[in-house]
Design a protein around this nucleic acid. Structure first.
Lengths: 354, 354
DNA sequence: CATTTTTTGATATACGTATATCATTTTGAG
DNA sequence: CTCAAAATGATATACGTATATCAAAAAATG
């Protein structure tokens, strides 16, 4: 009743282990009828190859690299922690993961690291893409060497990587629109704030946002902050003055400091009812803001899940499988104070494994 | 630069493989100074045991059983599919999973299956608990044989199982309350509908719901449907008549048919504005209802994630690890039409694995 | 120093698979 | 029937670890 081995299959099929092996591993030189008998035996016994034993015998291990931007922001910090956690969890499965620091917002710096990976015997590499000819060329060089290249969080041209794991930004924007529409049953005014609509992800979120906004809700012209906190603070202040009935704010991008400043002012003054605020990424100060009720809803792109998904994808590709079409699509999660997941803990170091 | 083996450790420590093994596996009979040298070598080389090879050598495999209620409802159908998917995914890692059908709502039937598991060489068992002396006794018998027992979805007494994997019902209720509060900015009336408040999970959800409801929102007395669709339909109708300004409905339990009937009526008549509807579990007809806009928000307990978590928990317990305190707590997910995850596909059968 | 005890080393087998080699049997063609 | 080609079987080694046994060396005891 134990799990059948290939030897069991061979016996059941009335052939030798060698022949069963030739069939299983498609080595050829086996008579048609023997092939059929072996396949029948596999079917009958429900044989599945013990991949761990196979990898052991093949001396195969999987080497993957993650290139994570070295940025002060909490987001990539969490991402790095998630990679480390997964690295530890999968170390026992012959999966080796390294993290490479990459200068932030620097396509040449990214390209340099990519180029240095070319002779490192990697089976897969995972990066937050920045679009530049040099980066694309480095990716192509890697892929032609048989290295699988995945983009994470930010994509490149879809034909120049093997898969993209990232948030469904349209759905994210729609979700934000839905929340603010819910909050403004009898019409009202809402304010979208983006980093820059030139960024593809922000544009897509904004598009989804407008799609989901109820017909009787007015969307003010989008404010582009260009990641300047002062801009945001100022814009929120002036908008509140002009529209005392402001129902909601959707902060499309990151860089929430200006927003938080303005919101605390509003909270103190009793002049306005604080608008409902929806923003992105449950990390660092955003988590705090949600906890203390400075903001209402956070749309999260689950960095830890992205890492896990990316690893699954690379492993599957390495094993010669093909990925389902929407494998990399991360559905946005919506968190309130009430269903906030616990902050990811950096697990304590353990002694030598026993 | 390859991953070091225990042989490498032994060489580096200047001892034989046998001694290194004695240290690693705590077999005793090793001089203090040798122990230290081996540990130092492990540290220095960053050695980690290849667990797959170790399991292979030990002839160890993990046998787990899931007892899933045989119920018409879509929920346990999805759960069963999730188990099958995980079973396939982990088959290659020496993890064998069997599914046992258990009669629904039948503690004696459950106990019977549990009792039949006693001599099946299981390392872990996972069940949707029903509280009864016979069930508890069967669980105790299993645990005293060294079988880990986890409860899923529904719990027993916390001291009679090794872990509980399930929804944080308080957070779920709070989330529902938050959504309805958002939707009723200037006060209003909301209607909670439960199966029965005698059920611990429903009671907890209701408690959370009240916690999160805004001060200016009126919560009508909870309706207990006792899983009768007619009851629900009738209650919704009469409530709408009595309270034309009904803002929202929170359906705490399952059995949504009566609710859907009443809602379609409301949608057709132009008399009332349809209240905002929040309910549970994105399966089957609920998914359809959300898609077509018959309801607004669904709180999901992610059955597939529960299965994966349960397996991780059992594996960790089998490996002698201890689980973090909140390991089994499933944070509720909130889905709108806009961020609905794709329906779980029953993956197509593949040919014999290569 | 002799003897016992403790510690160490060397070695074999096993797990389930991959891979290779060589001998043997079966098959097909002439 | 003969000979080559194709198919099969038998067997060995390896992967990294677990486990056991026995002999040899080192240390502790008297």
């Amino acid at each position: 009743m134990a799990k059948p081995t290939l030897m069991d299959v061979a016996t059941a099929a009335g052939v030798s282990y060698a022949t069963a092996d030739r069939v299983l591993n498609r080595r050829g030189g086996v008579a048609e009828k023997s092939v059929l008998r072996v396949l029948a035996a596999i079917e009958e016994l429900g044989y599945t190859r013990d991949v761990t034993a196979a990898n052991l015998a093949r001396g195969r291990s999987y080497n993957y690299a993650f290139l994570i931007p070295a940025q002060a922001g909490a987001f990539f910090g969490e991402m790095r922690a998630a990679v480390k956690a997964e690295a530890k969890a999968r170390a026992s499965q012959r999966i080796n993961i390294t993290i490479e620091e990459v200068p932030a917002f620097n396509s040449d710096g990214l390209a340099e690291v990519l180029e240095s990976c070319i002779d490192r015997d990697l089976s897969g590499i995972c990066l937050v893409a920045i679009n530049s000819p040099r980066v694309r060329k480095a990716i192509q060089a890697l892929r032609s060497k048989g290295v699988f290249v995945l983009t994470l969080v930010a994509d490149t041209q879809s034909d120049s990587r093997d898969a993209y794991i990232g948030l469904d930004n349209l759905a994210a924007g729609r979700t934000a629109g839905r929340v603010l529409s819910l909050a403004s049953r009898d019409g009202g005014v809402v304010l979208p704030i983006a980093g820059s609509l030139d960024a593809a992800d922000h544009a897509l979120r904004f598009k989804g946002f407008k799609q989901a906004i109820a017909f009787d809700v007015t969307v003010l012209p989008v404010i582009e902050s260009y990641d300047r906190p002062e801009n945001v603070a100022e814009a929120v202040r002036s908008t509140l003055e002009a529209h005392p009935n402001l129902i909601g704010i959707y902060s499309i991008g990151s860089g929430q400091n200006g927003l938080f400043t303005a919101l605390s002012e509003v909270q103190k003054s009793a002049t306005y009812q604080r608008p409902v605020v929806v923003l992105h990424d449950l990390v660092g100060s955003v988590r705090t803001a949600l906890t203390i009720g400075l903001v209402d809803a956070v749309i999260d792109q689950k960095p830890d899940q992205q890492i896990a998904r990316a690893l699954d994808a690379m492993k599957a590709l390495s094993d010669g499988e093909t990925l389902p079409a929407d494998f990399g699509t991360i559905v946005p999660s919506l968190y309130f104070q009430d269903n906030m997941p616990p902050a990811p803990a950096d697990g304590p170091e353990k002694g030598p494994s026993l």
